[in-house]
Structures are given as C-alpha cells and as structure tokens.
C-alpha cells in the first residue's frame, strides 16, 4: 500500500509556519512551472522546492527520492510517445518497424524534455505542500473559501475515515495473506472481493454509528476548528522573495526559448 504523505507532514517542523505563505509558494511554483517555455525554469523550481522539503522540512532524502520515482512509469511512457509523435522537421534518428518509420525530431525531443521538467517541478511543489502541511491545517484555509459547508464537512469526515478504513483494510489483508489468501491469481481475487465487501459493509455501519453519536453530542451540521494565528517571520519572507526573484528572472531570460 502507498505511503501516506500526511504522516510525514504531521512531524515536519515546517508545519508550524504560516499556511498562506506555504500555499503562495506552492501556487507560484505550479503556475510558473506549467507556463514556462524552457525546461530550466521548472528545473530550478524542482531544486529549490526539494531543498526546502529535505533541509527545512527534515524529510529523509531517501524517502523523498523514492516518492519522486512514483510517477516515473507514467511520465516516461508518455514522454516517449510525445518524443516520437510530436513535432516535425529533421529527424534526429529513426528506424523502421514492420513498415512504419518511427523517428524522433528535435522538436519532439525538446517537448518531451520540457514535459518531464514540468512534471518534476510540479511534483516537487506538490510534495512540498503535502510533506509539510497536514490536511488539518489546510481545512482552515478551505474554510476561508466560499465552498459550501456540507462539502467541507464531508471532506473533513472523509479525511478521518480514510485512516480508520486503511487500518481495517491493512488488518484484513494481513490476516488473509498469512492464511495464504494471496497465493495465486484465483485466491487473491477471491480475497480481494471479500476485503472489498467487508470494507463496504463496515464503512456503512460506521457511517450510521457516527451519525447517532454526533447527534447525541448536538451536531448541527458544522464542525468548528481552532484556526491558529501564525505570523510570517522576516527570514522566511526574505527567503521566499529571493526564491520568487530567482524564478521570475530565469523565466524572463528564457521566455524566448524555441519550444512552443
């Protein structure tokens, strides 16, 4: 099962920094990265964000590299397709495959590199957010938006029950595997069905129970949370501005790059 990045966020020292500052940094990185024409910009963003996550956020570097490799499969396959099919002009190299000529043009290769760099930059911004900011902190930010209360309520309760059900699912899965429930394809399919069914029925009964227990505690459709005030400190501000300047300058000087 996948790692829950939230576990690391709860322990990170950056958790106690201003939420809006972190969100501004991440949004800035995402938007500039996705609209840049040169692979250099997302690459600089990726380096800065990874440094911030590992050094300031105290995330183990080996774990960070491992989660960075997670999107690699999808991204590499798609980048190879883009390299082969995108762009025209002189082919850098080509080969015949049962009648079809497949070739990589320089434009296609540039595009593939740009997409790779953008994904790298975007993922590092996303990891910065998810490894330093627990969801609990983000709820207070979401509360400030105009989203309807019912959606936020559901999102908050869902967050709680994801952990409860993951525990249940892991427990059932261990119990099944020590009884050789995943020894071949047929048994693993059967075990999976039983796991899914039990999870569904358990979650349903749990849902009915929470409603009763929350009603008994005067639930009126609103969960109220404490929103802590965390002022932005000067060193953080200086560092953020320096990072923004670096990225904007690189963006400015590479805006004439050839791709798209």
């Amino acid at each position: 099962m996948a790692h829950i990045l939230d576990d690391y966020a709860v322990m990170s020292p950056l958790r106690y920094k201003n939420n809006w500052l972190k969100i501004a940094i991440v949004t800035f990185g995402l938007l500039v990265g996705v609209s840049s024409n040169s692979p250099l910009v997302p690459f600089i963003i990726a380096i800065c964000m990874s440094f911030a996550t590992i050094y300031f956020g105290k995330i183990p570097a080996s774990f960070y590299l491992k989660i960075m490799a997670a999107p690699a499969g999808f991204v590499l396959v798609s980048a190879i397709i883009i390299a082969f099919f995108f762009g025209e002009g002189a082919k850098l190299f080509s080969f015949d495959l049962s009648g079809f000529t497949l070739g990589v043009s320089s434009a296609g290769l540039d595009m593939a590199f740009l997409v790779l760099a953008r994904t790298l930059g975007g993922m590092s911004c996303l990891f910065f957010l998810s490894l330093t900011t627990p969801m609990i902190e983000l709820f207070s930010v979401l509360k400030a938006t105009k989203l309807p209360d019912s959606v936020l309520e559901i999102a908050m309760m869902m967050y709680r029950y994801i952990f409860v059900f993951l525990d249940v699912a892991m427990g059932i899965k261990y119990a099944q595997s020590v009884r050789l429930g995943y020894k071949d394809f047929k048994t693993s399919f059967r075990s999976m069905v039983m796991l899914g069914t039990n999870l569904f029925i358990r979650s349903w009964e749990q849902g009915e129970k929470i409603f009763v227990s929350m009603n008994a505690r005067c639930y009126d459709g609103k969960l109220i949370m404490l929103d802590e005030k965390r002022p932005v400190r000067l060193p953080e501000l200086i560092l953020t501005v320096a990072y923004f300047m670096l990225v904007i300058l690189t963006f400015y000087f590479t805006r004439g790059a050839s791709v798209l």
């Binding site: 559901i154 908050m156 409603f211 929350m214």
Partner: peptide
C-alpha cells in the same frame, strides 16, 4: 446522509 457520504468517499 452527511456521515454516510463521508464514509462512502473514504471507502
């Protein structure tokens, strides 16, 4: 339905 939908989402 609020808690039910929440657990359904978690599911």
């Amino acid at each position: 339905v609020v808690p039910l939908l929440a657990v359904a989402g978690a599911f």
